[in-house]
């Protein structure tokens, strides 16, 4: 039984890629709930602004995740580690959604 030389038996890049996918799915759920909350009591200017902001944050997160997924699937040796800047950006998107939510709830 021979396997290709570059194959990682633990499928680590694939698992990490899927973890990013799951996380974008979670952020989609949060964004949908945000949109529902923002436009629940009729269309108001503030509601539209917050809804647009949440959509923009969701898109930013999606871009980050997509960037990382492309890096992980690039077929050239072991994938580079996650850059702290990326991690921080993803976390800041999450925090910003929470701030939007706090504004909406209040």
């Amino acid at each position: 039984m021979t396997s290709p030389p570059n194959r990682d038996p633990g499928l680590q890049p694939e698992r990490t890629r899927l973890a990013w996918r799951r996380t974008t799915l979670s952020s989609t759920v949060a964004a949908v709930l945000a949109a529902k909350a923002a436009l629940h009591g009729g269309v108001t200017p503030e509601g539209v602004i917050i809804c647009a902001l949440c959509c923009a944050l969701w898109l930013a997160f999606l871009t980050l995740a997509h960037h990382r997924i492309t890096t992980l699937t690039a077929d050239s040796g072991p994938p580079p580690p996650l850059a702290p800047r990326h991690a921080t950006a993803a976390v800041l998107c999450t925090v910003a959604v929470a701030v939007c939510a706090a504004v909406l709830v209040y």
Binding site: Q12, P13, R15, T16, A19, W20, R22, T23, S26, S27, V29, A30, L33, A34, K36, A37, P79, P81, L82, A87, A90, V91, T94, V97, A98, A101, A102, L104, V105
Partner: peptide, 23 residues
């Protein structure tokens, strides 16, 4: 490093779930 990254993402999902719970 990748395992560390997945743990980070799992915590981020937990955070997103808590935010979704708030909504």
């Amino acid at each position: 490093s990748l395992a560390n990254e997945r743990t980070f993402l799992a915590w981020l999902r937990t955070a997103l779930a808590l935010i979704g719970g708030g909504f």
